[in-house]
């Protein structure tokens, strides 16, 4: 048996050996937490519109997202967000709060390497690809719309 066959056989063996986790609890928690975060966002939005009835819907959404980003960033700082993420998984990654967490967590992690090379550079380790891919895709969409 040559090395390639052996490696393949070993990889298959390991794959079969890895303990299967029951997916239902994590799916349930991600649904629950994700749903709650979205309702929280809706609640903030409704309150803003209640207090400032003349505000445009678009602006209200902007404030809502900024408040959510602030909350997630703060919870990351005091070490709560990672505990939520531990059982919520996708529930706390997919909302905009997860995006905020992914920027704040490396920022505080790497500040000992300095403000410039530590905090400011590492902020983008996860957020960088997200923003870049989103912007590239949106520019492409814009150019396509130019022709239709």
């Amino acid at each position: 048996m040559d090395a390639k066959q052996r490696n393949e056989a070993y990889n298959n063996y390991v794959k079969a050996k890895i303990p299967k986790t029951r997916p239902w609890p994590t799916l349930f928690y991600s649904f629950l937490v994700g749903g709650i975060i979205c309702c929280l966002g809706q609640g903030i939005n409704d309150l803003i519109l209640l207090w400032f009835p003349n505000m445009a819907q678009q602006t209200a959404w902007g404030y809502t997202l900024i408040i959510l980003i602030f909350l997630a960033s703060f919870l990351t700082g005091i070490g709560v967000y990672d505990k939520i993420g531990k059982f919520a998984g996708g529930g706390s990654i997919v909302p905009i709060t997860g995006f905020s967490n992914s920027i704040t967590s490396p920022a505080l992690e790497f500040k000992h390497e300095g403000i410039i090379y530590g905090l400011c550079v590492k902020m983008f380790t996860i957020a960088g690809p997200v923003i870049v891919s989103g912007v590239v895709a949106s520019v492409l969409v814009g150019i396509i719309y130019l022709f239709i």
Binding site: P19, T76, D82, G85
Partner: peptide, 17 residues
């Protein structure tokens, strides 16, 4: 964790292995 994986405060789940 910081060298090989993710920042400590990032809310992610660890695989069972």
């Amino acid at each position: 964790e910081r060298q090989f994986r993710f920042p400590l405060e990032l809310g992610n789940q660890r695989p069972p292995t």
